[in-house]
Every structure is written in structure tokens, then in C-alpha cells.
Design a protein around this nucleic acid. Structure first.
Lengths: 216, 216
DNA sequence: TGAAATATCGAGCAATCGCTCACATTTTCT
DNA sequence: AGAAAATGTGAGCGATTGCTCGATATTTCA
């Protein structure tokens, strides 16, 4: 009888040597994804790029998809943590200020590894890997909902849950698109202005200052 | 000397028989895409599903990607035409009414072949095919910009071009996401209400009715 | 009618894919 | 030290991929 059959092909790296291997593999996946896209991101290619044998890849990753998932997982975790940190700093200022702060946080968070972000958005198909992206959204939602509910009367919103969903989806839609198509707008601060107005106006139209007052 | 080498492998179908073949191929591509996803959408599979030999496929399509592009092209053309028709019907009512009409148009248009729409959004990678999707957006933009410019003073917007971009991106972001995640909201009419408010408030905060007035 | 144009066919090629496994090497632990 | 555990290796399997091409069938039209 040969060595016991391995049921789960995935193993956890315990020595520092193997942790470095896993690290190299994940980074290589990101690099290939960035340089040549998803279709070209074959397991053999990743192994070669990582300077590691294909066998080693399959010691820690059960299949091809899990490579991409790992990259996405990392990136999104980074975004999540950055966002959580920014939201934690949020004081109890008035509504316009708070909204602006949140918008600013969203914008800054979306500037972490923008090329990778773009590649992941544009290239990766399959809900399997993509689902994680929605989780990011799902994590903002209860926070925003709670915040809206706390200010329910002040805002007079019929349904905070739906409102939270709408503003998150709208903000993310705009940010994602602008980052892909008009990245310079972010630099110019145009986006911050417009997004703040979009969200604030939806939540509390009466608090929106006249447009001509807008900075720049 | 053998038959002249064909430079472009794509041929235009001239007889009705071949037009039917092309039709069958495009429909088969859509069907496979829908049923088994992008990865499973191989050329051989498409040919088989279309009830046509693989050779016939390559008479009219230069490569695999062009199959998916053809499907996307068709679908988006359909959406574009529907949208153009709806926008053409737009009367010269007041702002809130007009915005609501446009939102309604956007929602209805997005209900054309929703399953295919979803499959294309979720599955298809590669900017090559995806680029066409942005063109749809790009086509709304000048229309909305022009409309905003025509009502410039009434709205007091510093930059109609940016405003158009923002509301289109926001609306599309929300619609796309809701259609994928909460399709029932569309049926309930919730989305129409919220989107109208989102856009109207951004454009003219003073025209937004109190939230408690909202229907339902 | 019959030759040219158009269309269809499908066996099969070269390349690549994801992935396995028997074995070699390094590290850990007693 | 040496056994056991962890890690690394890469030739290569079987399947599939996108796609070609010579042969055949159908349509067009003078």
C-alpha cells in the first residue's frame, strides 16, 4: 500500500519555506492576470512565473479557479480593512460632512492597487470568484442601513434598507466606471464633489447647497 | 497553385441558406452561454448545438471570441433600439415627469432577455467583448448631456457633461445590480421610485417631494 | 444543362489544458 | 544520529481546445 491517498488536495503551509512558495504563487497569479489576462492564466503558466513546479501549486491549491479566488480574496480583504479603518474614524459631524467623508473613504479605498482591481473586474468571469466582490458590497450595507436608521426621523426615509442598497450600488457603480474610464476625474476632485451631491441629495434634498457654490 | 489563400476567414453569407446557418450559430452560442457558461462555450460545442459542422462555423466567424461578440452585438443593438424608441416618445413634460419617464424606459429596456443579459454580464470576460457594453452607455451620454444643456439655467449645473455621466453610471450601476441580486424590486415598482428620486434629487434637489409622499 | 460560385461537411492536427504521481530533497523532532 | 514529516519536482496522461483543409453537396445563372 502506497502513501495514503490525499482526499483534499489542499494543504496548509506550515514551514516558512512553503509559506513563501504560496506567496510566490499568489503573486504570480496576480502578475499573469495583469499582464496577459484571464484566458492566458493557466496553471502551468502561473507555476512557471512563480519559479515553482506545477506540483507545488497543486499542493496548496485544489484547482485553477482557487488561484484566482485567492488573489481576489487578498485584494478584497485589503479593501475591506482599509474601508473599516476609514469608517471607524468617522466622527459624529453633520450629515453633509459625514457623507463627504464616506465618499472620500470610498474613493481612497478604490485606489488600492487600481490596476489589479481593474484586471479583476474586467477579466474574471464566473460568479464563483465574482461572488466575493459582492460580499464587499454586502459588508457596507448593514453599516449604512444602521446609520440611516439611527437618523431615520431626521431623514424621513420610508425604507432605510433599500436606501442603503441604492446609495451603495449607485456610488460603487459610478466609482467603478470612472476609475476604469476617466481616472483623471478622481485626481481632479470632481468625483468627490459629484458623488457627495448624488448621495446627499438622495438622502436629504433640502441640505444640498446650490450648485454654483460647489468648489472648483 | 492551389486555391487562393483566404486572408480573412470571415465570409458574408449571401444565400438564404447560409444566412440561416449564421442565425443558428449565433443562437446556439447564446444558448450554450446561457446553459453552461463561458468556459464551456467551445467552438465545437457551439457547432454541435447549432446542428452545423465546425467547418461552417469558421466560414463566417474568424475565431471563438467573435461568436460571443456577435451575441453581445445583437443583444445590445436590441437594447439600443428599444431605448431610442422610448426616448423618442418623450414629450416636453416637467422635470420630475421626464426623469421618471427616462427611468421607466431604462428599467423596461433592461428587461429584454434578462437571462441572456445576466449571462453576458456575469460570464463574459475580456474587454474585447465587454467594450461593446460601454458603447451602450456612451450612446446615452450625448443625449442626456444635450438635454441637460438645454435646461441648463433651470437646473443650474456647473457641468452638464459630468452630470450626465454621473447619472447614467449611477442609474446603470443600480439597475444592473438590482436585476442580478434583487429582481423582485423591479416588479414591486420600488426601483422606479428610488431611481427617480436619486436622479431628480441630484439634478434639482428642490423639486424632490417629501419622502413620506412616495407611493406605496 | 453544366460549369462556376456558394455552402457544408467532419476527420483530425498541433497545441494546450488541468492535473497526478512516483520520487527527490529539505526540515523537524527525538 | 536518523526516522518521520513536510516540501518540492517535473515528465507526462488523457482530454479538450481552437481551428484547417480537402472533399462533397447545393445553388445560381448564362
Amino acid at each position: 500500500m502506497p502513501t495514503a491517498r490525499r482526499v483534499s488536495p489542499r494543504k496548509r503551509p506550515s514551514q516558512s519555506r512553503s509559506r513563501a512558495t504560496v506567496e510566490a504563487i499568489v503573486q504570480a497569479t496576480a502578475r499573469v492576470l495583469l499582464k496577459d489576462g484571464y484566458e492566458a492564466c493557466s496553471t502551468n503558466r502561473v507555476a512557471e512565473t512563480a519559479g515553482v513546479s506545477i506540483g507545488s501549486v497543486y499542493q496548496y491549491f485544489p484547482n485553477k479557479e482557487s488561484l484566482v479566488v485567492a488573489v481576489m480574496e487578498r485584494h478584497l480583504t485589503e479593501l475591506q480593512e482599509a474601508m473599516a479603518a476609514r469608517l471607524g474614524e468617522l466622527g459624529s459631524a453633520d450629515l453633509p460632512t459625514t457623507v463627504r467623508e464616506m465618499v472620500r473613504a470610498l474613493l481612497e479605498v478604490n485606489r488600492i492597487q487600481p490596476k489589479l482591481h481593474r484586471a479583476l473586474l474586467e477579466q474574471v468571469p464566473r460568479i464563483g470568484a465574482m461572488k466575493r466582490l459582492h460580499e464587499l458590497h454586502d459588508q457596507y450595507e448593514p453599516l449604512v442601513t444602521a446609520w440611516l436608521e439611527a437618523h431615520r426621523e431626521e431623514l424621513d426615509l420610508p425604507n432605510p434598507g433599500i436606501a442603503a442598497y441604492v446609495i451603495i450600488a449607485a456610488a460603487e457603480g459610478v466609482v467603478t466606471r470612472v476609475l476604469l474610464e476617466k481616472p483623471s476625474w478622481v485626481e481632479l476632485g470632481l468625483l468627490e464633489e459629484q458623488l457627495t451631491r448624488l448621495v446627499l441629495a438622495y438622502l436629504a434634498p433640502q441640505l444640498v447647497p446650490p450648485a454654483s457654490t460647489a468648489r472648483r
